[in-house]
Design a protein around this nucleic acid. Structure first.
Ligand SMILES: [Mn+2]
Ligand SMILES: [Mn+2]
Ligand SMILES: [Mn+2]
Ligand SMILES: [Mn+2]
Lengths: 226, 226
DNA sequence: ACATAAAGTTAGATTATTCTAACTTTTATT
DNA sequence: AATAAAAGTTAGAATAATCTAACTTTATGT
């Protein structure tokens, strides 16, 4: 048989690639230990997969050093993240799921082998730039834009902001936001900042004011307006 | 660890179950050999899976005899077929795919583990009874209705029929029907039957008459009207 | 009925992914 | 610097799904 040449990965390999992409620090490095914890797979297993990836030139790797996705690996990872985020957007916009329901399903659908399928989603959604949690959707070539949103907690008194994304998409946080009826795109003015504990008061409209702890404000990514 | 109790199958097991369901003859029996050919998996491999299925009470099996799905196995198979057919309908109706494009994608999506996902499809499609090829969609409990459509080739001169389903969903046949602009739901009158070779002439409307070979008429399933 | 062919089974090997236990290297702490 | 802890590796085994080769049973065709 001819040796495998092209970019066809198993769902398992795809999950490793995504994890490597997400966990990369500013130098693009990932510790085997972090990867192991993130994937909930023991270190020796992760170690063998890393070695396999090094063979396939998906990562740059030397024993006892952190791993780094190669340009090729980064591109492949971004393509899978694209499928994940497109799927989440599709599930919310077309199928009517809540943003707290989509991650688990997208985690599976991202592995479907059919470019047509994801192209059709893209078309139906009119080529969205962001997923339902405000994360950017990589393009078909694996290029990701960096929208440089800022943390709400880094804003000043009287700033006017739009909520653009969240840095924690856990069920608990999403359900918390649901309970306060906070959605991406909401505009608000910062009408108070408690200096003692950095609690923010936000005025969304005449009849809607909310008080958020620093914990929450750290997770809300915004853009200033005006 | 506790032993696995409930109905959670691997995609591979699900494909075996579906194949057993589809290949069953009138007595519900399937030969290992047919199964092997259908799945494109060698007989010894199929043999071991059958034995595993027998352990799990999904099939009734004795050495050197044909296999039979148990009631439990039949129910599980029908649930997967339900997901396959719902998906095909969704891909055509909601996403705008052609009926010749959906099978391969559905073959993968049928394995997604999320009842919510398929329930949402069902709801969006308003609880369809048939897939895009006219095959009945089993209900949530694995119950399948038998619509007893008849072969066009079994109809008589001057019969009026509606095309309800096709018994061959191969790409070639679907593209042939596309080229003639034949769709499910089309009505026609049989205006001619060549006795020599059973070629049918069908009048679809004032300006549309088609001549179909017996090969084609055998694959078109219809309902008589009036 | 006997021989051959077809279908089905068993045995043993292979690949992918995972684990635990034991070992090595690197990092942190006294 | 010595030691302990953490991180990383290696070795060896397990499971699921697959294969080929060899064997057995059943069916078929004279
Ligand atoms: Mn997600
Ligand atoms: Mn995944
Ligand atoms: Mn199909
Ligand atoms: Mn399938």
């Amino acid at each position: 048989m001819l040796h495998k040449t092209n970019g066809m990965f198993t769902p398992i390999e795809e999950n490793y690639l995504k994890a490597l992409f997400s966990l990369a620090n500013s130098n693009g490095e990932v510790n085997v230990n972090e990867l192991s914890k993130h994937l909930n797979i023991k270190m020796p297993t992760v170690n063998s997969m890393i070695k396999k990836f090094a063979e396939k030139d998906l990562v740059i790797y030397e024993s006892y050093k952190p791993v780094q996705l190669s340009p090729k690996g980064k591109k492949e990872a971004a393509k899978i993240i694209r499928k994940h985020r497109l799927t989440e957007m599709f599930l919310v916009q077309v199928m009517g799921f809540g943003w707290e329901e989509v991650h688990e399903i997208a985690e599976q659908i991202e592995h479907i082998k059919s470019n047509n399928f994801f192209d059709k989603m893209d078309e139906l959604l009119d080529y969205p730039q962001f997923d339902p949690h405000g994360s950017p959707i990589p393009d078909k070539n694996g290029k990701v834009i960096n929208p440089h949103f800022i943390k709400l907690s880094d804003c000043k008194l009287n700033d006017n902001v739009i909520i653009k994304a969240i840095s924690d998409s856990s069920n608990e946080f999403l359900l918390f936001l649901n309970s306060k009826e906070i959605h991406l795109g909401n505009k608000a003015e910062i009408t108070g900042i408690e200096t003692y504990d950095k609690t923010f008061t936000l005025k969304f409209s005449r009849n809607k004011t909310e008080v958020f702890s620093k914990l929450v404000c750290d997770k809300l990514l915004v853009q200033k307006i005006e």
